[in-house]
Simulated assay, not measured.
Amino acid sequence: MILSKIKITEKFDPQDISCSPSILIENDPPEIIKIIRILSGTAHLRNDATDEIIYGGDRNFINPGDDISSADMDRVLEYIFEVKPEEAEISSIFRKASILNRGFYRDILSELLYLMKSLNKENYTETFLYTYRILERISAACPLIYVSGERDFRSAYSFLSSIYDDKKSPSELVMLKKFLQHYASQNDNFSQATLDFELSGLENEFATDLVSEFRTIILPEVSTMVIDEANGKITIPFKDVGHFVATVRNRTFHNQGLQANINLPRIGGSEPLFALLVPVLLYWFSYVFVDFAKWQLSKAS
């Protein structure tokens, strides 16, 4: 069996696109920019063998209200630069960025391609698996790239020491949890942001059973989660989403007798659960990754 590869192509006719040439797919921008293009809904994913579109770029996960057209593709650059540089500077930054942690970003991009393919097929459990794999991969990188931009050695040392405050090395997602909590203490917007899972559009029985499972199984481990039945939503602070994802993964993928786990048969299997969670989690991931990209590109400036 020959496995088909996935390629990234332009969503719009190249002749109609108005933007910096540096972000065009045909000019092979750095992997970090290709990821931004996919998350912003400005690129197609195609089957390399058949040229079939397997993801149409129909959602902007970075800014859901921003529908970028061919005429204003440069808005992609507004996500990663406070002020758009001149074209020569963009080319220089991208050229330097293309060699920074290239293998790492290539791995993230590869996972993201199959994540989007699964999402397009509405295979939500598989999409969650790829989401989890990406979070594990960025968990160690986020703190290291972040502190590399710190100008105060003492604050960088204090932060890294807080991650390694136990005698044993922390797991990747424990590192992500501690990093996000630290980042929230430095960033008011991030600290105040929440991820909201809307329950109002769900069937009553499923919503009732899901709330019961989350209250019994997830809430004891993620104490900052708020189940607001009156307004029909479950809310997680941005800083605790990584911990929430790890907890959901553990309580759904494991089924040990001594551990309380989500009763998947009760809620109709894993697909209804992850159909609710995955699209919203991708908005959160995109928010985090864009900040991540800004730190990385600042190193190439």
Rank of each mutant, 00 (worst) to 15 (best):
K34G: 02
S20T: 14
S70L: 10
S270G: 07
D13L: 05
V290L: 05
P29W: 00
I25K: 04
I145N: 09
K11Y: 07
E172D: 12
A156D: 06
Q296L: 15
D72P: 08
S40N: 03
G269N: 10
P85Y: 03
Q256L: 13
P170H: 06
F253N: 10
V288A: 01
L202C: 05
S91D: 14
K168Y: 08
R151E: 15
Y114P: 00
G232S: 07
S98H: 08
I53T: 02
T125Q: 15
V288L: 04
I35G: 00
V278T: 00
L112G: 00
P279A: 01
E136K: 12
L297R: 01
T224R: 04
R266K: 08
L113R: 05
G57T: 00
R137K: 06
K121E: 14
D48G: 06
T127E: 03
F214E: 01
T252S: 08
T9S: 07
P265W: 07
R266T: 11
R75E: 15
I68Y: 04
Y146M: 09
A43G: 06
E221D: 09
R106M: 14
S40W: 03
R95Y: 10
I53A: 06
P279L: 01
E89T: 14
L176Q: 06
N187H: 05
L202F: 04
L24M: 11
R59N: 12
N187S: 09
L39V: 04
R249H: 10
E26F: 05
L281M: 02
I217T: 04
E26M: 10
L39D: 01
E87K: 13
F159K: 07
S155D: 14
R46E: 14
V288I: 09
G201Y: 05
F94D: 01
M225K: 01
I218L: 09
P143Q: 05
N27Y: 02
R266P: 13
L3H: 10
